[in-house]
Design a protein around this nucleic acid. Structure first.
Lengths: 214, 214
DNA sequence: TGTACATCAGTGAACGCGCGTTCACTGATGTAC
DNA sequence: TGTACATCAGTGAACGCGCGTTCACTGATGTAC
């Protein structure tokens, strides 16, 4: 078999794979990046893991279940990244907030497969209670950052903290979808990073949190 | 046949449909809304139009070609809507700009099938030169609005007009994707319209185009 | 107005394909004694 | 250390399915005379 060459790498012994579950998740992530959210098939993932089409059923209930596991892992990484970014910016509420915005984009760059399964595969963060919990953790970080930010704001024109976090979430998501993909035709002169950075900057100025001439 | 009841509505004569091309596009739009961007099949669209699976090939080269036509019509409507919104806001550069932002969201509401084929079907606005041209027209409106807006801005801290239009595009797109869908789990207390309106407002304030207490 | 005929826009049967899933099976591994 | 045996994690063949596409066909329509 053609995959034998890699058998020794992870304790693969021939008949027993040893690490199939994760290998299938990894194959899913790669496929989804390569062929788009729906281009992925259970059969192809099995093939890529060097295993028969029936094998995945030892670890997953079915096709949907595999995607969900990939998304689950994604949300976990995502939440960790957001939390880490938040802590990095502390104790400055402003720095923490900006950092979480950047973390969103950075996550989509470093884990494109996860990003796709999470936001474009149709699984969505309400498919299972577990995904809901995990996504709540991630977006909770952004919400908290927004809430703290709120307290540094001129009190008269202070929008709800949730609204602020949703603005940044939407802006980040839009930038990722439109400008961070390899898609041609989007030959923007600005990088996604620049776009998000400047957009958030202007927005924060609008909130009165950054001085006009910085 | 079960679809005979509707035959008289549009000149349907039994053997000849009379309006198949558009009927297939309409079926595509409905399917894509109902089952997601990839849930659509040529066979199902034909079925919904009350016609055999081979019939679509009289009007389209294949599956891909049908989606592309749907997207093409979408871009046309979209561009018209953007232009109309722009003119509505004139001669105020600010009002025109805000109107185009609103038009983006309004379009996604009124033509969800088109929106999906345009932005989520994988066809993308660079698949064909024709789509590219049409999408350029639509986004050109937004760019122009941003350019005019630029001239009303404090000259020292004036970001490139293209950047401004891309910020708004990204924010609009993000709001649509995250908060304008029926998806549960996104139980936001704010409507997509409110979110976009307030987000754009804060952003424009950040540009120095709206006074702090308005 | 009537007829012959070209063209148009459908039909329906057939194809090959890959998918998701099930099933009885079997080789490998771990454990009890 | 060796052996018996349960359990685990694979196999491979088979299934039914719906899809995209092709083909020779045929009914309906439009036009020339």
């Amino acid at each position: 078999m053609s995959h034998m060459a890699r058998d020794s790498a992870k304790g693969r012994k021939g008949y027993h794979h040893g690490n199939l579950k994760q290998a299938l998740v990894d194959a899913t992530l790669a496929l989804v990046v390569e062929k788009g959210p729906q281009g992925f098939t259970l059969a192809e993932a099995a093939r890529q893991a060097g295993v028969s089409a029936a094998a995945p059923y030892r670890h997953f209930k079915g096709r949907e279940d595999l995607i969900e596991e990939a998304a689950r892992q994604g949300f976990e990484i995502f939440a960790d990244l957001m939390e880490h970014a938040y802590e990095t910016g502390q104790p400055s509420a402003l720095a923490a907030f900006e950092a979480t915005g950047r973390a969103y984009l950075a996550f989509s760059r470093r884990f494109p497969g996860h990003y796709i399964t999470m936001f474009e595969s149709g699984v969505s963060f309400a498919s299972s209670p577990e995904l809901k919990t995990l996504s709540d953790r991630a977006f909770g970080v952004l919400s908290n950052a927004a809430r703290e930010l709120s307290q540094h704001m001129p009190e008269d024109k202070r929008p709800p903290a949730n609204m602020v976090s949703q603005h940044i979430w939407a802006l980040s998501h839009g930038v990722v979808e439109l400008f961070a993909r390899g898609e041609p035709g989007t030959k923007s002169p600005f990088s996604a990073e620049d776009l998000l950075e400047s957009g958030v900057g202007i927005y924060l100025r609008g909130l009165g949190l950054i001085e006009r001439d910085e």
